[in-house]
Every structure is written in C-alpha cells, then in structure tokens.
Amino acid sequence: MRQKKSTLFMFIAPAIILFLVFFCYPVLRTFAMSFFDAAQMSSKVSTWEFVGLNNYFALNSTSFPGALTMLFKVWLFCGIIVFVAALLFAVMLTSGVYGKGFFRSMLYLPNVIPQIAIGYMWTLYVFSSRFGMLKRVFTAIGWEAAANFAWTSPDNMFLSMCIAYIFSSTGYFVLQYMAAIEAIPKSLYEAAELDGASKIAQFVQITFPLIRNTLVSSITLWTSRVCGFFALSRVFASASTVSPLMYIYNVLFGTESSNTAVGVGAAASVVVALIVVVAFLVSNLIPKNNDIEL
C-alpha cells in the first residue's frame, strides 16, 4: 500500500517540531548570542548589542583556555585508565568467574550515583586529611608518608578529582565491553585452546580484534561524556579543576557576588560544541573492522 507524503509528515511532525524547538532553536540562539553583548540569557534579541568576534577574543584572557587544557588532561589520562580498567574487568567477568552478575552490578553502581554525591563521598570520607579512609588505612599499616599525603590541597585536587571520576566512569564501559566480548563465538576460544594458545594470546589474537569497533565507539562516547564534565569540578573546587562547563555556568548565571558575561559564555559554549563535533568526526575516520563476520 502506498502511503501519502502528508501522512508520513504528520507522523514525524511531532518529533521534528520538538527537535526544532528544543534543540535547533537554543543552539542557533546561542551561536548568534556569541557575537553579541547581552545582559542576560533570556534578554530580548532587540536588546543585544553586536560585538563581532570580541567575545571569542575575550575568552583568551579568562580561565577558559586553562579549563580546556584541564579537560584534555581528563580526557587523555582518565580515558586511558578507564579503558584499560574496563577492559580488564570485562575480560575477568566474562571468563566464567563466580558471581558475575553481582560484580557487574557493583561495578556499574557508581555510574548511577549522582556525581555530586560521588564527589562528596570521596572528599569527605576517602580523602579527608583528618578522618578519611586513606588516612586511616595508611596510618594503620604504618605508612606515614602516604597517610599524610594532602589529597585535597589545591595542588593535588586535580589528581583526587580524576580518581573519583575514574571510579564513577569505569562501570559504564565494563558493561559495553562485556557485551562485545560475550558476542564472540566460544568456538574461536575452544579452537585456540586446542592449538595451545595461552590466555594472553587469545586476548591479543581473538578478543581485541573482534571488539575493536566497540572500542572505537567508546572513544566517541567518552569524549561526549568528558565534555559534560561539571559536577565534580564544583565539588573538587580549585583553580586547577575549573572545567569549561563550570566556566560557562559561572559567566552565564554569575554568583551572588560576581557579574555575568552572557556573550562570552555563549562563545565558550560554541567552542566546546565545535570541539565535540570535531572529536566525533575524527573518531569516525578511524577505520571500522569489517574483515571478520561473526
């Protein structure tokens, strides 16, 4: 039966309208605002004053470039550790270990806890220099140097924040990798066992090549996840932990005591959005593994 185009449009219209109103309009408005000086986020367009690229130039004399550098470090260093740890856990949990479901749930649990709660849990109960878990454990075993390490001092705040972020992010990727590994036919491993391949050889020769596509897509997911870095940046407050989103929030809404710079905040938003788009395009350039059909 042939459908009329108008009928098709009628069915997809709600989705398109919602997309235009709640996605395209704010994006276009923010992009336009980045070239204007506006008093507030919700100021009428007629009150905006055109300033050209000045908002983008102004970003250079703020903490925004430092915030981008901070974000890149989180993306790179935390990313490497999260991926390696997630892969390790995924391989362990798919090796027929007892209590797989329990361990999987426990690993995923930090992912469903709000980042703010994760942040306070780590700062107050793990890193606290007075009664934190690390202080007590290291003191109990007599390792004074480690017990006295100042986890929450301004110089070490970035390190502490990264540890908390890795803790809360690993479980998400464990699940992804487990699903990919479990899709690999057992017969491949059985054949490799018969041929005398070690566990490490099986991982390098079978597992890793067959989950490559998942690994590549997880880089894209990780990038978009890191770009939304905000809550931990507020809890682990320090000059070295200001994220781009926190910078944008502060200049868009201000605080009780500071002024707003809405146009500059919009320019920063556009820069972050462009970085996400470029990262997505670059990750798509990584060739997919289409050689093997399972």
Binding site: S63, T255, N259
Partner: peptide, 8 residues
C-alpha cells in the same frame, strides 16, 4: 569576588 572567574 566581583570577578567570579578570577576567584578560584
């Protein structure tokens, strides 16, 4: 504190 970006 009037420069919130400088405050951290």
């Amino acid at each position: 504190r009037s420069n919130g970006d400088f405050l951290p």
